[in-house]
Nucleic acid binder design. Structure first.
Lengths: 189, 189
DNA sequence: CTTACATGAGTGATTGATCACTCAGTTAAG
DNA sequence: CTTAACTGAGTGATCAATCACTCATGTAAG
């Protein structure tokens, strides 16, 4: 074997792309991404054959990163309400604490460069992580799709994150209000 | 006076930009927009000094267009529940019936090319149209911002539109489910 | 009314900048 | 040594924006 590829550089490129997308949108030039990662532009294309491939990898990377922070092992004696609220709070906190990553995710999620396969993988990951709770306990008698419920939760959380970022003084209040809206909306009355 | 500018062309450019953005994203070339509008590329820049200016005008145009369809005069004897449900259904129906416009709005809403002023104008428009209902009757005792409630409603409607577009067979069901989630979430329990 | 003139809308080839991606030469890990 | 990672100047394509020019329209002098 000759020189191996470096995981450090692979990750540095992902992180750099997140920064660049947050500040310049998806039009961020590969030259800038490479510079931020501390490698030559050519190296970028050794790790990711095309810019689109890089963008899709960035999307999956960010979703995984976020899910790791959101989904922590919970006290088995806790109620569903408590467990759901903990995940909700982790979600909002993560978004507020990582505005750059949050901005990048928002833009990637609606981009036409994200392939159907990437969307599929993200959906599957979310369902794997908290689909059981959702499908077992929310609206199941109405036979509502887990995908829909998950999308609703994400949308409400996203709105709350953006609101809290622009109104930091009322962060605690809107975190609570947002959770109550979600809970009341999604559970049986 | 010389030849006056044509409102027809101005509107044709806006409509063409919507098409182009829906199919190519915000990277849609001005040459394509001009071609779709049936004018020369140079003419585009007589009506809109820069591409960014055009993009902002497209955003305001779409929001106005959508609001016109959503907000129709309602029976004064109707209840708040009935009135709100009617607006909700109009919103979902409009999004489903206008997937191109809907796609363009989704992309424009998170673009960094939309100025703070444009966002401000859109918010103000929404508040002007249905802010009274919202602030008078939802969660007012908790002193929750009308902006937040409006953002929540928009997010829920957007999720529902996208879900209905990809699951047309269950359109009626998810329209109803979506409305119930919103109503239960936002009204006093 | 007629006609010369003034104005600015309309055009599309051109320009200069930028970008994604390549490749020949260089470096370093095994 | 061998081999593949690494580099960054180079390339061709693309794009936003410009510009010199045409022509439709409105104005006013005779």
């Amino acid at each position: 074997m000759a020189r191996p590829k470096s995981t450090d550089k692979q990750v540095a490129l992902l992180k750099a792309a997140v920064q660049a997308i947050a500040s310049d949108g998806l039009g961020a030039p590969t030259s800038k991404i490479a510079k931020l990662a501390g490698v030559a532009e050519g190296t970028l294309f050794r790790y990711y054959a095309t810019k689109d491939e890089l963008i899709n990898e960035v999307y999956l990377y960010l979703i995984n990163l976020m899910n790791e922070s959101i989904y922590k092992k919970s006290d088995p004696s806790s109620t569903l309400y408590e467990r759901t609220e903990a995940i909700w709070n982790n979600y909002i906190d993560w978004g507020v604490a990582h505005p750059v990553e949050n901005s990048a995710i928002s833009q990637l999620a609606v981009s036409e460069k994200i392939t159907a396969e990437s969307h599929e993988r993200v959906m599957q990951l979310c369902i794997d992580l908290h689909g059981k709770d959702i499908s077992d306990l929310f609206l199941t008698e109405q036979n509502v799709s887990t995908f829909y419920v998950d999308a609703v939760m994400n949308a409400l959380a996203q709105v709350t994150v953006n609101f809290v970022i622009s109104h930091p003084a009322e962060a605690t209040k809107y975190k609570q209000v947002g959770f109550k809206i979600m809970w009341k909306g999604l559970t049986q009355s």
